[in-house]
Nucleic acid binder design. Structure first.
Length: 581
RNA sequence: GGUCCCGUAGCUCAGCUGGAUAGAGCAUCGGAUUUCUAAUCCGACGGUCACAGGUUCGAAUCCUGUCGGGAUCACCA
């Protein structure tokens, strides 16, 4: 049971009762009412702003309204005290039984703890990574990949049906460049000595592609004209690059359900179709864009182009759909792509992009609004840059060919779990510092370690208990007398666990998985604090030789805490550590 | 120049979609260990929430403007 959600409904019931007896007018909007933990725990267990929010529409003084509401809430089960504070906050204090009961919920739910039906099975499409298929993924892709994946997990956790999607940019000019680069490697594989010309991809990840081409085609392609070998080489290369990328993503534990090819949109006429749709709405014209202000470059020239009236949907400028030579811009198939998502039944779209694409948000939102007649909502999450540090020193990747840090480099050095957690310790729209040393550091300062250590510590205590012959089977723990948990720090931990489902829901609604990382850090802090309290007061230790019942109750408590930690880590895609070594 | 993001303690950052006396970690200072792993914990110190207006019962949070930092810009993808 989500205690906050439970009391939300109880408060609404109380308000409805007040409406029924004429104390409050009907037709009030309850949507802004919040039930939350008070900022200061001394105020109580729960706090609601109901009286303040409803005061104006009800035409009542907030405190007077609060008093009426308090009358109703006093009789509520599990409520021990109701007070009015400040401008009209209503603070509730609950029995410790109801909080302690939450421990059983955790045990019953296990790693699924915090799951809810908020999303009601609604389809959500999360598009993330979508890196150009021209080589292995580099470190710059990692944050968006982890963010998108954790967000997808989070939405699934609260009951959405999530489609994880990757848009393959396999139609642009860079694909031909890639194919030509692979062709060089093909010649190399046939025994030629090659030098990769300027402008082609020099990376040696194409060497296996050349070998594969040579194996399949022998020297047949050498004699063929461009028009013949190019499609062959392109398709083979693309397939191998996507395998490479899927492998990279797998290293991070990421698996997409749908890989959507841009090229298919050109081939099946979807781009023309969506342009026709926009044209019928009168949103397309031929015109000339103005020179961007502040652009003093020489090579600017006026060009008549096919333009989309994105300014009608909040964009700053109309946007080109065709280049001056009549071919499509990148934007045109992208509209078709988003329309395709809509046609596949998605009315909630989330795109995860890097900071370098932020200038693209308005036009895509405009396009989605236009083609779906505002029937779909799209949220574009931009992940700001990751700055890399080694031992506190920033370092940049040089642009020189081949000299970039790959996703695999990072994962090989610090491990999948550390990378994933660290990437989620900032909100997406703030830039993030990633220090290789800090991620591996075993200290309070490193949240990756700190949270893992809390979990491992609990596992360690449970192992010790088992060695001492204490039955820690789930079924036995479920029968513990939890009323023996009386210490303030114990109850604080229990309340924090009880608030966890709420944290999950709010993170999901805000599309902000980083909040889970912070909630876990807080939970770990409460546990470490409790553990250490047992040092000062031996009577508070988890395992007491002379009191089996209290021991069982405490082991149940920390077992539940471990489950909550692993539930949260699960959302982040991080495996909880059983021990630290 | 336009657009987007950021600006909160000396440093790195949270701040629950507008709530109560703005919170953590690091650093500094003072404490706790024959350990259920001290790889941890407890306490103290530390703030004009960049600045100026506005909206209202109430603003770090929303709006306008200014300043500072970053990203980005028309036929690349």
């Amino acid at each position: 049971m989500n205690i906050f959600r439970h009391f939300e409904t109880r408060i609404e019931a109380a308000l409805n009762a007040l409406v029924a007896e004429g104390t409050l007018p009907s037709g009030l909007d309850f949507s802004r009412i919040a039930v939350e933990p008070p900022r200061d725990a001394s105020h109580g267990d729960l706090s609601t702003n109901a009286a303040m929010v409803l005061s104006k529409p009800a035409g009542m003084n907030p405190r007077a309204l609060a008093e009426k509401l308090v009358e109703k809430l006093k009789s509520e089960a599990a409520v021990t005290e109701v007070t009015i504070a400040g401008p009209g906050f209503i603070n509730l204090r609950l029995t410790s039984e109801i909080w302690l009961g939450g421990i059983l919920d955790v045990l019953a739910a296990g790693a699924a703890y915090g799951a809810s039906t908020l999303g009601a099975g609604k389809n959500v499409n999360v598009e993330y990574v979508s890196a150009n298929p021209t080589g292995p993924m580099h470190v710059g892709h990692v944050r968006g990949a982890v963010f998108g994946d954790a967000l997808a997990n989070l939405l699934e956790k609260v009951g959405y049906r999530v489609c994880r999607e990757y848009y393959i940019n396999d139609a642009g000019g860079q694909i031909e460049v890639l194919a030509r680069s692979a062709f060089m490697r093909y010649r190399e594989a046939l025994g030629e000595t090659i030098t990769i010309p300027e402008g082609l991809y020099p990376g040696d990840y194409l060497v296996p592609v050349g070998v594969a081409l040579a194996k399949t085609h022998g020297d047949k392609l050498l004699k063929a004209p461009d028009t013949e070998w190019l499609p062959v080489v392109r398709d083979t290369t693309m397939a191998m690059m996507m395998d490479l990328i899927r492998g990279d993503l797998a290293v991070l534990g990421i698996v997409h359900e749908v890989f959507f090819s841009e090229r298919t949109l050109h081939q099946n006429g979807a781009v023309e179709a969506v342009l026709k749709l926009l044209d019928e709405k009168g949103l397309i014209y031929t015109g000339v864009l103005e020179r961007p202000k502040g652009d003093a470059s020489e090579d600017w020239e006026e060009r008549p182009q096919t333009l989309f009236r994105s300014t009608q949907f909040g964009d700053d400028q109309d946007r080109a759909l065709k280049k001056s030579d009549g071919s499509w811009t990148y934007f045109a198939p992208d509209i078709a792509y988003h329309y395709d998502k809509f046609q596949r039944g998605f009315t909630t779209l989330i795109d995860v992009w890097g900071a370098d694409h932020s200038g693209y948000i308005k036009r895509v939102k405009a396009a989605v609004a236009a083609i779906t007649d505002n029937q779909a909502e799209i949220d574009v999450k931009v992940c700001q840059m990751v700055r890399l540090f080694r031992d506190g020193e920033p370092f940049r990747m040089s642009k020189r060919a081949g000299d970039f840090i790959t996703l695999r480099d990072v994962v090989d050095e610090v491990g999948k779990d550390a990378v994933r957690f660290m990437m989620l310790t900032r909100k997406n729209d703030a830039s993030l510092d990633f220090d290789f040393a800090k991620v591996m550091e075993q200290s309070r300062d490193n949240p990756v370690f700190y949270v893992q250590y809390a979990h491992a510590r609990i596992c360690s205590v449970l192992r010790n208990a088992a060695e001492q012959g204490i039955d820690i089977a789930e079924a036995s723990l479920a029968k513990a007398d939890l009323s023996l948990l009386k210490d303030e720090a114990e109850l604080a931990l229990v309340k924090q666990m009880g608030a966890f489902p709420r944290a999950i829901e709010q993170a999901a609604q805000a599309h902000e998985p980083h909040r889970i990382a912070f909630a876990l850090n807080d939970l770990a802090a409460s546990f470490h604090g409790l553990w250490n309290k047992g040092k000062d007061e031996p009577g508070l230790r988890f395992i007491l030789a002379d009191n089996r019942d209290v021991t069982i109750a405490r082991l149940t408590l920390i077992r539940a805490a471990a489950l909550v930690l692993s539930a949260g880590l699960g959302v982040l895609g991080v495996k909880p550590a059983e021990e630290m070594r």
